[in-house]
Simulated assay, not measured.
Amino acid sequence: MEKGPIGVFDSGYGGLTVLKEIVHLLPQYDYIYLGDNARAPYGPRSFETVYQYTLQCVKWFFKQGCPLVVLACNTASAKALRTIQQNDLAKIDPSKRVLGVIRPTTEIIGQYSPAKKVGIMATNGTVQSKSYQIEIEKFYPDLEVYQQACPVLVPLIENGEYDNSGTDFFIKKYTNALMMQDKNIDTVLLACTHYPLIKEKIQASLPDNVQVIAQGSIVANSLLDYLQRHPEMEERLTKNNALNFYTTDSTDDFDQNGSVFFGQTVRSKHLDLNSISC
């Protein structure tokens, strides 16, 4: 079969924190990253809208020759992944695969919590989907899960306002609201790929005994495991250490902000929305 790169998708910049960890662990592969910044954020949008946007982008990745696409976006994983996997892949190309960030995280999150009480900080869309509660229940039925929507954090982070007192105020507001649900929560999962940029601030606003978990390394290790278990997919991936970035909005903005999320210089190309909407 035709070989191609791994596609990594996010509504904006956040997925770059996941791609960063994937590339660190699996540097030999080729990657295409697409940030749908022109239509971000996905968090407040309806299930149907997120599904349609995500499906359009997945189809675009397939047209670029990607046999495997990772939805490095919690909202897209929560609102679109299952429908794409169950209904669309068979029609588009049954040999290709789309993976998300929720399942890899929920498979191991229980290992971090001796108290069996986990807090989830996420966007409105991810919280409303209850995807984490549903998936964690499958692996850890005795684990208590508490969710806290943090609607202001993504806009603040994407506008570069994550290192000021205003952001500190909202972080404290959300962490206090989460801990008020159960003071014995001992593990907080950052179920949004933007939040690693403010992980230290979130950690500082929580009690000392509470650990904060980001998803990047979890997803990277899960992808490694997946490719080891599916050599037929691994053989379809090109290995030239190539990285290509695309955004549906301003490349200047993407390069400036994306470099912060990715931890190194990013040079992107503009992708016209019409080319993925047709």
Rank of each mutant, 00 (worst) to 15 (best):
T17H: 09
L81R: 13
Y226L: 02
T54I: 09
E137C: 11
P5R: 02
L26C: 06
V219M: 11
D249P: 11
L224G: 04
H24G: 09
D88Y: 04
I198M: 10
D30M: 03
P196Q: 13
S275P: 01
G15R: 07
M121T: 00
K199F: 06
K199D: 05
K3R: 13
Q147M: 11
L237P: 11
R39S: 14
D255F: 06
N184V: 09
K63R: 15
V70W: 02
D272R: 12
Y33H: 07
V18N: 10
A204T: 07
S268C: 08
H270W: 14
C150F: 00
F9K: 02
I32G: 02
Y146R: 11
A242I: 04
G110D: 05
Y33P: 03
T49C: 07
P155W: 03
T193M: 06
I120Q: 01
G15K: 03
V98Q: 10
Y132D: 01
I84C: 08
P155E: 05
A149W: 01
K91V: 08
L68H: 03
H24Q: 12
Y132M: 05
E137M: 13
H194P: 09
Y226D: 04
I6Q: 03
K269E: 13
D208S: 15
E234V: 12
V50H: 08
N159E: 15
T106P: 02
T54S: 14
G35C: 06
Y42M: 04
D36I: 05
C57G: 09
A149E: 00
S217L: 12
Q133F: 05
S250H: 08
G166K: 02
Y13T: 03
G119Y: 02
A242C: 04
G14D: 03
A204R: 04
I198R: 09
P104Y: 12
H230M: 09
T247I: 03
